[in-house]
């Protein structure tokens, strides 16, 4: 009987852990507008946290692009998001978003980037980037890949 109870408890514990691992970690919204830059580009700063150096950098890039696409940057001319329904669009265009960040396609939209010295915060490494993103080209790319509608209906 005791063995059965132990087995049951183990199963419950295991399923909780498995579910917790499935949940995706949300990006932080530590992305802010730095001011006007060349026409068609947006000048922002973005911070990323991770235990590994390389991943911290990529996390900052991800934060920048995901905030721009799914949230909009307050104070800038892109103060409303490019995409309305984040989860639906992300699921439908998984390959596009994988290519954009992990595949390195984001580099073709970045016209300037500078990286701060890594600092330690909350047991993680923190890196902040200052970057200019060609938002007109990004919007066009999203339109061409049918991630968002073109202007109009």
């Amino acid at each position: 009987m005791k063995k059965k109870i132990n087995l049951l408890l183990f199963c419950i514990f295991f399923s909780i852990i498995a579910n917790a691992q499935k949940q995706k970690v949300s990006t932080t919204a530590e992305v802010s507008y730095l001011g006007k830059s060349e026409k068609g580009t947006i000048y922002i700063s973005s911070c990323g946290y991770n235990k590994k150096d390389k991943k911290t950098y990529l996390q900052a890039v991800r934060n920048a692009f995901e905030t721009l696409i799914f949230r909009g940057i307050p104070g800038s001319e892109v103060n409303v998001p490019f995409v309305e329904n984040e989860y639906e669009v992300k699921e439908k265009n998984k390959k596009y978003f994988d290519d954009l960040i992990d595949g390195g396609k984001y580099k073709s939209f970045v016209t300037y980037i500078s990286e701060s010295e890594p600092t330690k915060e909350f047991k993680s490494k923190k890196v902040c980037l200052q970057m200019k993103i060609n938002q007109v080209a990004l919007r066009k790319d999203l339109e061409q890949n049918q991630v968002i509608r073109k202007f109009g209906f």
Partner: peptide, 18 residues
């Protein structure tokens, strides 16, 4: 200075129409 924001707002209304 503001045309992008203007068009973005219009696009939100178009999405509502769609």
């Amino acid at each position: 200075s503001c045309i992008e924001e203007f068009l973005n707002t219009m696009q939100i209304k178009f999405t509502d129409i769609v």
